[in-house]
């Protein structure tokens, strides 16, 4: 579902990604760990097409990210610590806006379903600017899932969330993965990654130093790579 081949990205003299090659199958739930500046967010930006690779290639569902960007965009949902939500619009208006951009069929029903699932139904007509951080992030996940993507890219989705919001998002992500959605999420919390992901990637200075099933990784294996250099 996600395939990268010798993916490289440089910002001037700084090499953010130094030749990443990996493949993720349908329904896989993987966590991407690493210190600040390891290249996690850069990798997600390259896979989502927001950034151009210096060399190498990335594919989503068999579509090349650079050559077939529209096909890729239709198949991915992205959540980052920035919500991509319009604060002057209500929760429902935000979902309808993005729904129309993705040409979602049965938009009203789909939007209602997601708002209920994210426990935002009572606040659906309220402006997003009145929402707490947790509510905004839940709505951001609803936005990302609105068009039923086959790949979900989550860039530190739990930043600033309370425990209830983390639980809600976790169960939603696990359900999505069980429903054959491929999930790749960057995280800073090794405990959470070990407990909830089925595959673990660790990036260190732009290189993939660990790529293993989560049950085969111990916390001690990861921690040395959490020091920023």
């Amino acid at each position: 579902m996600i395939l990268t081949r010798d993916l490289r990205k440089s910002f001037g003299p700084v090499q953010a990604l130094a030749g990443l090659s990996f493949a993720m199958a349908e329904g896989e739930l993987a966590a991407l760990l690493g210190a600040n500046g390891a290249g996690k967010s850069t990798l997600l930006r390259l896979i989502s097409g927001l950034s151009r690779p210096s060399s190498g290639s990335a594919e989503v569902a068999g579509f090349d990210v650079r050559r077939q960007p529209q096909e890729v965009r239709r198949r991915i949902g992205v959540v980052s610590h920035q919500t991509f939500l319009y604060e002057d619009l209500s929760a429902e208006e935000n979902l309808h806006f993005y729904g129309r951009m993705y040409s979602v069929a049965g938009l009203q029903e789909r939007s209602d379903e997601l708002l209920a699932m994210m426990e935002l139904w009572p606040r659906r007509t309220d402006l997003v600017r009145t929402f707490s951080r947790g509510m905004q992030q839940r709505l951001a996940l609803a936005r990302a899932m609105l068009h039923q993507p086959t790949v979900l890219l989550l860039d530190e989705p739990f930043t600033g969330l309370d425990l209830h919001a983390i639980d809600l998002l976790t169960s939603f992500i696990e359900e999505a993965s069980a429903g054959r959605v491929t999930v790749l999420m960057t995280l800073h919390d090794p405990d959470y990654a070990l407990a909830h992901s089925r595959r673990l990637f660790v990036l260190h200075q732009g290189r993939l130093v660990i790529d293993q099933p989560s049950e085969q990784v111990r916390k001690g294996d990861i921690l040395p790579f959490f020091r920023e250099k």
Binding site: S48, G49, L50, Q70, R73, R74, I76, V78, S80, Q82, T83, F84, L85, Y86, E87, Y98, M101, Y102, R143
Partner: peptide, 15 residues
Amino acid sequence: QENSMMQGLLLCPVD
């Protein structure tokens, strides 16, 4: 640019 909304727009399948 607030909330990186432009990125949200760029992620949509829109020309």
